[in-house]
Amino acid sequence: MDDFARLLKESWTLIEQHRERLSDHFYARLFLLDPGLRNLFPVQMTGQGDRILEAIVTASQTVGDPESFDEYLRALGRDHRKFHVDAAHYATMGVALLDALRSTAGDGWNLEYDQAWRDAYAAISEKMLAGAAADENPPYWHAEVLTHQRHGSDTAVLTCRALQHPLPWQAGQYVSVEVPRHLPRVWRTYSVANAPNDDNVLEFHVRTPGAGWVSGALVRRVKPGDLIRVAAPMGSMTLDRSSDRDILCVAGGVGLAPIKALVEELASYNRTRWVHVFYGARTEADLYGLAALRELVARHPWLSVTPACSEDPDFDGELGDIAEVVSRYGPWTTHDCYVSGSAPMVRATLRVLAADDVPPERTRYDTFGSI
């Protein structure tokens, strides 16, 4: 397996700087092999290729770790049911992928690389198909938007109710969302911002600094009464109920969403673990969820919340990037740690935790994009 993983990683170095070319060749070949597949994809393909390639690359790099390989790919297979992908489509995508890899890599490609990717894709598609076949839930849920609250020009908090079938999720997980009225066949992942409940209601925190696609529609165009689609939950940033360690939660911006869900879940059973939430944003106005957090603090003596602003010198609280603030209150060596926010914020916080010698297995995190 070590040699197998080495061949995959080694061959990827021939391609990783040419992802756009790989994507273009992959889709051109795919739609030539089966023109009907074009109907499964958005009208505007911008960004779609990068997401699929990211999934393939991530999967190929997990081949050497059987446990994560199995779990990740079965979840990916369940998620891809929302695209109406079947076994024949997987075979066609495999042919297109190998053709695109060979073409993009050029003269550096060899038979060993080719066979390694054939074997990897066979294993990937087998696990994904098994995950899809074992899932008894629908490929996605229709959900009605119940409330929609704007916070400034680029952020919204909305709730929706999944219709017809219960949607099972765990606090800390994320789902894919489609807004079919405005952007059919375009999906974007969002963390669920509340713990599971009997009412089948999900809360989402959405930020779109630019025009955006799905995020832009959810912030600026969706209103109560509209229907959206929600796919199966994924993600492993969930609570370890067997642990008795205290908990550190670090949230940046709309990265608050899964942290809020984790705290709500803890509120249903926790009595012994101290929970410290650090919540950061650029300005006080960006701390849209602070009031709700303080309401939770008032009800639960084991919970504390420390807000911080990085660009608001008049803020009556901690100043600086949230990772810097977390480091001032450490060390966090004996805690279970959950981190959620932008990629730079997560990386900076993980460096702080590493400096505190927090074991990697006690840290779970999610990163948020802005599309």
Rank of each mutant, 00 (worst) to 15 (best):
L14M: 09
I15G: 09
E16P: 03
R19S: 14
F26L: 06
A28Q: 13
L32T: 05
L33A: 06
G36Y: 07
G36T: 10
G49C: 02
R51S: 10
S60P: 05
S60K: 02
V63P: 06
R74S: 07
L76Y: 08
F83D: 01
H84C: 11
A87G: 11
Y90R: 09
G94W: 05
A96T: 10
L101H: 07
A122C: 10
A123I: 13
I124D: 02
A132F: 10
Y140P: 02
Q149A: 15
G152R: 04
C160L: 15
R161C: 03
G172H: 08
R181I: 11
H182V: 08
L183R: 05
R188N: 03
A193K: 05
V201I: 04
P209T: 07
D226F: 06
A231H: 04
S236T: 14
I247N: 02
C249T: 05
G253H: 01
L262D: 01
E265Y: 09
Y269F: 15
T272H: 15
V275L: 14
L287S: 01
R294Y: 15
L296P: 00
H300L: 08
V305Y: 04
C309D: 00
F315Q: 08
D321K: 02
A323L: 02
V325C: 07
T333W: 08
C337Y: 00
Y338C: 05
M345T: 05
M345Q: 03
L353S: 01
L353F: 06
D356W: 06
P360F: 08
P360R: 04
Y365T: 03
